[in-house]
Design a binder for these strands. Structure first.
Lengths: 114, 114
DNA sequence: TTATCATTTTCCATAATTGGAAAATATTAT
DNA sequence: ATAATATTTTCCAATTATGGAAAATGATAA
């Protein structure tokens, strides 16, 4: 998976349903690694590794609070994905500028901190 | 990559920049496997295998014309991807219904046959 | 039929991904 | 300092992905 293209890492991270589940949980609210681990039939170590894959792809970021590590969705990155998809599907391209400016003005309010 | 979830296959297929390049070429116009192969420093066999990965993910479909195999972008599948992205990024969800109905009415014209 | 062309498949070696188990690190509590 | 908690890392084995080379398939041309 060692390619400098950012999208390689993003799509690779998204290609596993466990990792997508983590993202879905994080889209609701930020959680600790331990909280996320409880949702899966995996050891802490394995979950931690998957979280690192999401982190390397910049789909999430972490913050420390004592000995707990909180994971947060990085909403910004989705713009890159959306751009790629729009590029493939011409008929969405027309909507992208509109979408872009919408996100630029609205997204900040959704991020609740970082 | 053996999981029944459709998105696993889609995102896995998208996680390689060679395969994404193939898609980008096909978003312009349908091409034969041989034409696509010329764009890459790979043997026909290797290209054929990557094309099969895209085909299994239903990102493309094939049609035969004599001994040549044409590859076509399957625009429909992107709706699934867009849905997932919108689900992750709540602030896009509001736009999805609008986008959906737009695609339903417009997409057919873009597909020029199948 | 035989030859040629386009593509796919098989075989194989190499590399990458996955997750468990246990050791290591870091932080807090006693 | 010692113990407990939260997380990460290392080591390891099993599985999967990758692409080259060459054989196999399928279609057309001579």
């Amino acid at each position: 998976m060692e390619n400098d293209n950012q999208l390689d890492g993003i799509f690779f991270a998204l290609s596993d349903s466990k990792r997508r589940s983590i993202l879905t949980e994080l889209s609701e609210e930020s959680k600790t690694v331990g909280e996320l681990a409880k949702s899966f039939d995996l050891t802490m170590g394995a979950v931690s590794k998957n979280i690192k894959i999401l982190e390397n792809a910049k789909l999430i970021y972490k913050s420390k609070s004592g000995r707990q590590v909180y994971c947060h969705m990085n909403f910004d990155i989705w713009r890159e994905v959306a751009k790629f998809i729009a590029m493939q599907t011409k008929f969405w391209e027309r909507r992208l500028n509109e979408l872009e400016s919408f996100i630029d003005t609205q997204a900040i309010g959704e991020k609740n901190g970082r």
